[in-house]
């Protein structure tokens, strides 16, 4: 299956620096601190390159073979010089080490008043949730449009300007890694334990989020977006982005369709009959399914409800039990809406 690659214009391409030689946008407190160290190391490396390669080129030209009876210099070692070029680089190395270590310690100790955001990594999709605004996962339309197709929405981390934010991250299947280049922060998202990461955004705008730990086929399209908003707008925008309830006059099936897009069901269950990872929803409702333990039963309301909450209880034959449980993620009303939506898939 071809990677469902999120086209870049849908994903708020980052304001990359004009030329590859300029640094990335420095959009977080860590970025500002780190770039000075980055430039310092670069200067150190350029100077050492000039010295070493310069000496090499000079010797190559000066001591090239003149004639067959050249006589070469008998020098075999020079203790003073050798000690010199061991100690001097070591001093610079210690400076870089201490500078880097101090920044790293600062990066790994989040302030107590940081805003708590929960990130969950799952095979090829990030889910951003705000404990302060319980509801659905926070998504946004491409180019920050008001409304768009549910399946086009990208997971988005809304962050207030100049406020520390702490991400508590966990994965449900394999190791992923949450990486925001513009903020210079990255942390592996390991299943079975929580890892955390914090930053303070100091520049407004949209920045991409990558997954940098290889996690399978669509590793390269497991992208998300960070939108930095002024403190005043932040709360309202997040509330609107994460609210997930039945609008008035909206049919349960349409609500179910929105849930289908938001919760990442599309990653494994298609609507057109083609089996991706899980069975396709087309014509599923009411069909008798052959289970892996040999028995068979009709795919009715409570089978679908049970499969959403405990997916590995009754697995259809030929499919591997990979589906994560949505226990506690979906309210009853939302599960009913999803069932309505599946019924509608003839």
């Amino acid at each position: 299956m071809i990677a469902t690659f999120i086209p870049p214009d849908k994903l708020g391409t980052p304001p990359m620096s004009e030329s590859p030689w300029a640094l990335l946008p420095t959009a977080s407190n860590h970025a500002a601190a780190l770039d000075t160290l980055y430039v310092f190391i670069t200067i150190l490396c350029v100077i050492s390159m000039i010295l070493i390669i310069g000496a090499q080129l000079y010797f190559m030209v000066k001591y090239r073979k003149r004639s067959d009876n050249d006589r070469t210099n008998p020098i075999t070692h020079n203790t003073k010089l050798e000690i010199g070029w061991s100690v001097i680089p070591s001093l610079f190395l210690i400076v870089i080490f201490v500078w880097g270590e101090v920044q790293f310690m600062d990066m790994s100790s989040p302030p107590a008043n940081a805003i708590d955001v929960r990130i969950t990594g799952q095979k090829w999709q990030w889910t951003v949730a705000y404990p302060q605004f319980p509801g659905g996962p926070s998504l946004s339309c491409p180019g920050n449009a008001a409304d768009c197709e549910p399946t086009e929405k990208t997971p988005t981390l809304y962050v207030p300007l100049n406020e520390p934010v702490r991400l508590t991250m966990n994965s449900v299947d394999v190791i992923h890694s949450f990486y925001i280049p513009a903020f210079r922060v990255k942390k592996d998202v390991v299943p079975g334990r929580y890892s955390n990461l914090w930053f303070t955004a100091i520049e407004e705008g949209e920045f991409p989020v990558f997954c940098t730990e290889y996690c399978g086929d669509e590793h390269s399209s497991m992208l998300a977006k960070v939108i930095v908003l002024p403190k005043s707008e932040w709360a309202a925008t997040v509330k609107k982005a994460t609210e997930l309830k039945l609008e008035e006059g909206e049919t349960m099936a349409h609500y179910g369709e929105r849930l289908y897009g938001i919760n990442g069901c599309a990653a494994c269950h298609t609507l057109d009959g083609e089996t991706k990872v899980g069975p396709s929803f087309k014509g599923l409702y009411g069909r008798t399914e052959q289970l892996s333990d040999g028995s068979s039963l009709a795919a009715d309301d409570n089978y679908i409800r049970e499969s959403i909450l405990e997916p590995n209880a009754k697995v259809v034959a030929g499919y591997s039990p990979q589906m994560p449980s949505f226990q506690g993620k979906l309210k009853d009303e939302q599960i009913t809406a999803l069932i309505e939506f599946i019924k509608a898939q003839k």
Binding site: T120, A129, P134, P137, T168, L244, G328, K329, L330, K331
Partner: peptide, 9 residues
């Protein structure tokens, strides 16, 4: 324990 993602925390 309930996963702290979308449900009440």
């Amino acid at each position: 324990e309930t996963a702290p993602v979308a449900g009440e925390v």
